[in-house]
Structures are given as structure tokens and as C-alpha cells.
């Protein structure tokens, strides 16, 4: 990859070109992923377990290769390295991910992380603060907001996810769905332009799922959503990228890709229920 920027204008919100990544044990997680998302687009990332979806998502804000090099450099000194996130940090000679035309590398790390909001799958991984409000304010405080301002932003974001009354509660007193929404508030508080969501609807009961799904739909940001929830994809995604064995094997509009039974079966997926029912009836 020599010149990342394609001719179109403005630059893609997310551009991934030939991204490869190896786990510390040498297994290839990603082998040449290409993906482009235009501003405002909602793209679903589907694929079987172990396809590399989460790994790809972590690359989008520089949490994988090169992450440690911007600050302390574990590996030198006695920093002790965990694989998964820290290790296998073979510095690519050139970046292979761009956000809004900006390469994801050490120099742009802080700005990239401000622009890319990452929602983790397990809310307990993301809510590490003693209270909900502290957790939501974590991002704004790190971005240099004054405390009063950070608190105001945090309350606003909690309002948006309908959790304003839970602001002083400790995270473990919240239900799973509430924690999920609180995490989203924490991400929104950083005012990201690109939202990256890992399995947003997993483990939610139907009502929470509906609520969360509507909430996601209402957000104007560019979205990349890794999910197994194919109905959700049909409901609100403009495009689907099918990832398997570290490669994007199909990329197109949801009806075409999810409706392609042979393709879906070949990659450990199935037709969405609504499509199966539709076909059975017709």
C-alpha cells in the first residue's frame, strides 16, 4: 500500500488496507483486511467466532500494534508483557489503518482514540470506576475537561441513555442492560466521530435489546458493528462485511450478503430468521 487516500472527498471515516496481525503464538489473526467506511455509514461486521472481528476492532484505535511504544515501552525494562494486547507488537513499517484520513500510529494515538469510540463486549471490562458518573466522566477528564464540565457532559450522556438517575450507583448494582448503556454513555462522552461496537446486543433480554438497538440507531456517528445478531444487521446497517479467517470475504448490502445462503453456510453463519421465514412462505 503506497498511497492510502483514494480520490473521493472527504476521506473515508475508516480505511483499512492490507491489515495483517499475528497473535503472539504466531497464529495469523488478520491476513490482509481491506475495508472502507464512508462518513455516516453504518457497517456490520459479521463472521464466525475466531474470525478476527474483535482483533480488527482493536486495531481501529491503535490498541494493538504500536500501542505501547507511545508511552513506556514494555519489553525494555521489566515491563511484563501480556499477549493479546501488548505483544506480537511487530511494528508495521507503515500504517494500514486510517481514521478520517489520519493514519493510526503512535503520533496520532490520542487524537485517534478521541475520534474512535470503542464499546467492548463485556461491560465489566469497560466500567472500572467506582460509580457510574465517575466512569462516564473518565473520558472527558482524560481529554482535559475541567471537573465541572466533565460532570455536565457525563450527566448529559447518561440522560441520553436514560440512566440519569443511576449516576451515583456503583456499577455492580446495575443490570446487564443498564451497564451496557452506561458503557455507551462513557463512549459518547468522548464525542467520537466513529463508533466501534463489539457485539452490542449480545446477552441482552429482548426488551433491553430493543432499547439498545433503538439507541444505537439514533446516534449520528459513523458506525462499525461486529455482531452475530443478523436481524439487527438487517434492521439498521447500510452494509455488511463478512470476515472469516482474517480476511474480508464479502462486502455488500445486507440483503444480498445475508440472503446468500451458500455464502453464509460456508462461513459458519445462517440466513436471518426473517429471511428464512420469508422464503418459506413464498
Amino acid at each position: 500500500m503506497t498511497e492510502p487516500l483514494p480520490a473521493d472527498h472527504p476521506p473515508a471515516a475508516v480505511l483499512v488496507r492490507g491489515l495483517t496481525y499475528r497473535y503472539p503464538d504466531g497464529r495469523e489473526a488478520l491476513r490482509g483486511v481491506d475495508l472502507e467506511i464512508r462518513p455516516g455509514e453504518t457497517v456490520a461486521l459479521v463472521g464466525p467466532n475466531g474470525a478476527g472481528k474483535s482483533t480488527l476492532l482493536l486495531h481501529l484505535n491503535g490498541l494493538l500494534p504500536g500501542r505501547g511504544a507511545s508511552g513506556s515501552a514494555p519489553g525494555i525494562g521489566h515491563g511484563h508483557d501480556l499477549p493479546g494486547i501488548g505483544k506480537g507488537r511487530k511494528r508495521e513499517a507503515e500504517p494500514s489503518v486510517w481514521i478520517d484520513g489520519m493514519p493510526v500510529d503512535d503520533r496520532h494515538g490520542p487524537e485517534i482514540r478521541r475520534r474512535v469510540g470503542l464499546l467492548f463486549q463485556d461491560p465489566d471490562d469497560q466500567m472500572f470506576s467506582p460509580t457510574v458518573i465517575e466512569d462516564v466522566a473518565f473520558g472527558p477528564l482524560n481529554l482535559g475537561r475541567r471537573k465541572a464540565e466533565a460532570k455536565r457532559i457525563a450527566l448529559e450522556c447518561l440522560e441520553r441513555v436514560d440512566l440519569a438517575d443511576a449516576s451515583d450507583r456503583p456499577p455492580h448494582h446495575l443490570s446487564f442492560g443498564e451497564r451496557k448503556r452506561a458503557c455507551l454513555a462513557g463512549v459518547l462522552a468522548c464525542e467520537p466521530t466513529v463508533l466501534v461496537l463489539d457485539e452490542p446486543t449480545a446477552n441482552l433480554d429482548p426488551r433491553s435489546r430493543r432499547k439498545f438497538s433503538a439507541l444505537i440507531r439514533s446516534l449520528p456517528a459513523t458506525k462499525l458493528i461486529a455482531t452475530h445478531d443478523l436481524e439487527f444487521v438487517l434492521e439498521q446497517c447500510d452494509r455488511v462485511a463478512l470476515l472469516d479467517a482474517g480476511r474480508v470475504v464479502a462486502d455488500g448490502d445486507p440483503e444480498t450478503i445475508l440472503g446468500n445462503e451458500a455464502l453464509m453456510e460456508a462461513h459458519g453463519l445462517e440466513l436471518p430468521l426473517s429471511m428464512r421465514l420469508g422464503r418459506a412462505i413464498s
Binding site: 482493536l58 484505535n61 490498541l63 500501542r67 501480556l82 493479546g84 494486547i85 501488548g86 490520542p110 482514540r113 478521541r114 474512535v116 469510540g117 470503542l118 467492548f120 463485556d122 471490562d125 469497560q126 472500572f128 473518565f138 473520558g139 482524560n142 481529554l143 462513557g186 463512549v187 468522548c190
Partner: peptide
Amino acid sequence: ERVHAAMLARGW
């Protein structure tokens, strides 16, 4: 590891 990643993701 994941908590640390989540903290970095929000500008820690």
C-alpha cells in the same frame, strides 16, 4: 488486559 485496553481507548 481488557480493562487496560478499555482505559487506553478512553484516553488514559
